[in-house]
Amino acid sequence: MKIGIIGFGLMGASLALALREADPTLTFVIADRDAGHRAVARQLFPDSVIGDDLTRIAGLSDILFLATPVRTMGAIAQQIGPFLKPGMTLTDLGSVKEQVIRDIAPHVPGNCHFIPGHPVAGRERSGPNDADPLIFKDRNWVLTPDENCNPEALDRLTKLLEGLPIAHVLRLDAASHDRVLAFNSHLPHIIAFAAMLESAKIGEDLGVDMRNFSGGSYDDMTRVAAADPVMWRDIFLTNGERLEEMIRALIGRMDNILDAMHASDEAKLTALIAKARDLKIRD
């Protein structure tokens, strides 16, 4: 089986390495427009077809993964659509599903299968030099097929993914996926980016190096601020409505805590913190 990967960054490269470890009989065809990424791909996969011609790689693929920023996927699908082999499966690694489906689906030929996907995994770094096949270990992979999805194609993709060291392959509708990920993934990145910007301002105002006064909680809150700016810009812009909903919901929770603080309401403040602690302990 030929596995195609368009986008040999952190996630695309990690996926290729993980699939090769899971099944050495697989062959890989890889496309990336970045010459440096292609050079790394040739080092890691010296016997594979590697290039910058997306249509060639797409035409060779039995299962093709799009591992590029989400706002590029529609244009890529439009470009490669006429070259896809009958019966092949196109999927993606995007962290947003509703907009990606709207962008990709119109360009997939009727004799091919489009099964949107999202590995709930990642790192705060980017690029193939940080690729790690264990990035998916014990993480879930979400598929969001519609009611017309070909069952044989879905089963084939599911079995391929189940060969990885993931926890489970989950199925969810696209709208629910985007609402869940807006809170569990996208919102924490918003918080981290905003915290780093405010930290820099406070440090500048006070003339101190904030890193000298940071502990584990600060590091936990800001770790993902080192993530790829283009990737996260695209995620925020394509899941903006859901993300705004989650930002406002979190502000509401913080306002509840502020109200208790302003009122010196020890009982309410203790109850809110204790409830959150208990939820985390059971997490």
Rank of each mutant, 00 (worst) to 15 (best):
G9N: 02
M11A: 00
G12V: 00
A13S: 07
S14F: 01
S14P: 05
E21S: 11
D23C: 08
T27H: 13
F28T: 15
R33L: 15
R33H: 15
A39L: 15
V40G: 12
V40S: 14
V40K: 15
L44P: 08
I50Y: 07
A58H: 08
G59M: 11
L60G: 13
S61H: 05
I63F: 05
A67F: 07
A67R: 09
G74H: 08
I76M: 14
I80M: 04
T91I: 00
D92T: 04
L93A: 05
G94W: 00
K97Y: 03
K97Q: 11
V100D: 07
I101M: 08
D103Y: 00
A105P: 04
N111L: 13
N111M: 12
H118E: 05
H118D: 03
A121E: 02
A131Y: 02
P133E: 02
F136C: 01
N140W: 02
V142E: 01
L143N: 00
T144A: 14
P145N: 04
E147D: 15
N148D: 14
P151L: 04
L154Y: 08
T158Q: 10
K159P: 07
L160G: 02
L160T: 02
L164A: 08
A167D: 06
L170N: 13
L172E: 13
D173T: 09
D173R: 10
F183T: 10
N184W: 00
S185F: 00
H186L: 00
P188C: 02
P188N: 02
I191N: 04
L197V: 09
S199N: 07
S199W: 11
A200S: 11
R211L: 09
G215T: 00
G216H: 03
D220R: 08
M221A: 12
A226N: 13
V230F: 10
R233Q: 12
R233S: 12
R242Y: 05
E244L: 14
E244D: 09
E245Q: 13
I251W: 01
R253A: 11
N256C: 09
H262E: 15
A263T: 07
S264R: 08
L269H: 01
A271H: 02
A276V: 03
R277L: 00
L279R: 09
I281Y: 09
